[in-house]
Simulated scan of single mutants.
Amino acid sequence: MRTDIFARLDREPEPPKIEIPRMSRTRLALFGGTLAFYLAIVVAVLASSWLVIIDWKVMLFRPYQQWPEVHATLDYFVVLGQRGPTAVMVAAWLGWRSWRQHTLRPLLVLGAALLLLNVTVGAVKLGLGRLGPHYATQVGSTEMFAGGDIFPSGHTANAVVTWGILAYLATTPTARRVLSAVSAVVALGVGLTTVYLGTHWLSDVLLGWAAGLLILLALPWCEPLMDRAEAVVFAARERLRARRRRLPTVPVAAGGAWPAAHRRLGAPAQESPAEEAALDPVGASGGTRTATRATLTHHPRAHSAHSAVRSERTPVTPAGSRRPPRSRPATGG
Rank of each mutant, 00 (worst) to 15 (best):
R245W: 06
V250K: 05
C222Y: 09
R237A: 12
L216D: 04
R237I: 05
D227V: 06
L240D: 12
E223K: 01
V232L: 11
V233Q: 11
R237W: 12
A229S: 09
L240K: 10
E230G: 04
R241Y: 06
L225R: 09
F234Y: 10
E230T: 01
R228G: 09
M226R: 11
L216G: 03
R243C: 03
M226G: 02
E230K: 02
R228F: 03
A242K: 09
M226E: 02
R239G: 04
F234M: 14
R241D: 08
V233A: 15
R246D: 14
V233S: 11
A229F: 10
R246E: 15
V232G: 00
L247A: 13
L240N: 08
R246Y: 06
R244N: 10
L216N: 02
L217S: 03
V233T: 13
L247I: 11
A235S: 14
P248L: 06
E230Y: 02
T249S: 13
E230M: 01
L216W: 00
V250C: 00
R245S: 11
R237F: 06
A218E: 02
L247E: 15
C222W: 15
D227N: 05
A242M: 08
L217C: 03
R228V: 07
L217W: 00
E230Q: 08
R237S: 09
E238T: 09
P224Y: 04
R228Q: 14
P224L: 04
R245D: 12
R241M: 07
T249N: 12
A235K: 11
V232P: 00
L219Y: 06
A229T: 12
C222F: 15
E238G: 00
L219M: 15
L240R: 13
A231Q: 15
A235D: 11
L217R: 02
W221E: 07
L217N: 00
R228C: 04
A231M: 07
R244V: 02
M226Q: 09
R228D: 12
V232F: 07
R245Y: 07
A235R: 14
M226A: 06
L216M: 00
F234S: 13
V233N: 04
R239L: 14
C222I: 06
R245V: 01
V250E: 08
E238F: 01
R239T: 09
E223W: 11
L217T: 03
E223V: 13
R239V: 07
R237G: 08
R244A: 12
A236H: 08
L225P: 01
P220L: 04
A231K: 11
M226I: 10
R239H: 13
L240G: 06
M226V: 06
L247D: 10
D227C: 03
R244L: 13
P248G: 07
A218Q: 04
L247M: 14
D227G: 01
A229M: 15
T249I: 14
A229W: 13
E223L: 05
R237T: 05
L217H: 01
T249D: 13
E238W: 02
L216R: 02
R241Q: 13
A236S: 10
P220A: 05
A218K: 03
V233G: 03
A235P: 00
R239D: 13
R243M: 07
E230D: 09
L240H: 10
V233M: 13
L219A: 04
P224K: 01
L217F: 01
P224Q: 02
A236W: 09
P248R: 08
L240C: 03
R246S: 15
L216C: 01
E230H: 02
V233R: 11
L240S: 11
A235N: 10
E238M: 07
R245H: 11
A218L: 05
W221L: 15
